[in-house]
Design a protein around this nucleic acid. Sequence first.
DNA 1: TGACATTGTGTATCTTTGACACTATGGTCT
DNA 2: AGACCATAGTGTCAAAGATACACAATGTCA
Lengths: 224, 224
Amino acid sequence: MCSQHGYQYPRPAVTTDVAVFTIRGQRLQLLLIQRAGEPYQNRWALPGGFLDINEDLEACAKRELAEETGISGVYLEQLYTFGSLNRDPRGRVISVAYYALVPSDRLQPKAASDAADVQWFALDQLPPLAFDHQQIAALAQRRLAAKLDYSTIAFQFMPKTFTLSELQAVYEILINERLDKRNFRKKILALKEIEAVGELRRTGNHRPARVYQLKNPERVDIIK
Amino acid sequence: MCSQHGYQYPRPAVTTDVAVFTIRGQRLQLLLIQRAGEPYQNRWALPGGFLDINEDLEACAKRELAEETGISGVYLEQLYTFGSLNRDPRGRVISVAYYALVPSDRLQPKAASDAADVQWFALDQLPPLAFDHQQIAALAQRRLAAKLDYSTIAFQFMPKTFTLSELQAVYEILINERLDKRNFRKKILALKEIEAVGELRRTGNHRPARVYQLKNPERVDIIK
DNA sequence: TGACATTGTGTATCTTTGACACTATGGTCT
DNA sequence: AGACCATAGTGTCAAAGATACACAATGTCA
């Protein structure tokens, strides 16, 4: 029985889980850890874990992400809170789910203490997931897709500097269609969210591209 | 100490709170209850309360809403989960916040057991609120405003049947501008979300208006 | 039956979006 | 040095969507 603070009713446990996305190998990918212990031992799951009693929710998500995957300093946003009665065989567990976006130049997931293994998976080739993590991942993907249309969230997949062609490639992967180069550049530049840094990037035996950067790297703006 | 299910760490308490909106007297209004007990005795607050250990989150929000205000069967959607360390003087309390929309023909809030009083307040004239409920209400209002643009959420303020002029009035209040009658009707009818029920409604000494209803009253669609 | 209040309707203009093809530049090869 | 290759970078026209705008129709009431 719980009896702190004068409330003697039994309390659910609270966890945070994070759906971490990146773009890798021309695919949108999700970061999973293989569970070391019970329940769902050896099953793949979203990184996450129990909330410390003196810890902010977002801090918990960041901490678990860092501990289990080594990732920090990335875009992180609360997604939804899952609380079905039987989502965890250990008892009543509420999960505050977040999603995170990792730039493609910083995807060095390293297995840490809590997880047997850490690995990226293409979204259309996910293994069976522990708990209701399949649902969480699906909702995160829908939220991401929706936000593409009316925010600058896709920029969060980009490294500090990038070319317009690289940015276009990211958009094309995310929405799964080809885009017209001229229209794309027109639209992106009209947002006034990025600026030329003044250098050229040469990759391959062809004309080098202008390099751009975000004016406000931390910010995700609502557009239109 | 909590020791169910083998997890001996102290657990936060979990509550749900609901920001209930309606349109009343040409104003967007929020439903508040006056707290009967400590903490924040006599302060106004969002309806809400502690999660039962065998209760779904949404069920908890609905139950507290019904118990405290007599309102049920309305549109309800999860908003955000608030978990700052000091948001509740009783200790660590996580609140899963929801928002609800009540049609203007069903706003009979009645004070029930838990609340000393229940009352509608115009959003620009809110009293000081308990806990972080001011923040919750503000976020709910922003979410509502955002959803107006890309969903049919405004229909949830309408009674079962309504006229196009009544619907337009609701939109005008929500976005706080006047709309052109012809353009408004064109856009609404293009959505194919409502249909003429075949009657006329006469109110006042002038030409009566056609009466419409939602094709899918429960549903909120994403548009555009 | 005339005055009143609100309903209901169409068109013209502007803005935004989408389709479309060629030149520019640096690298590599001979 | 010149030809070839690969990608970068640029403007216009047409279609669709959004906005501005005014008057006739209908029921009530005196």
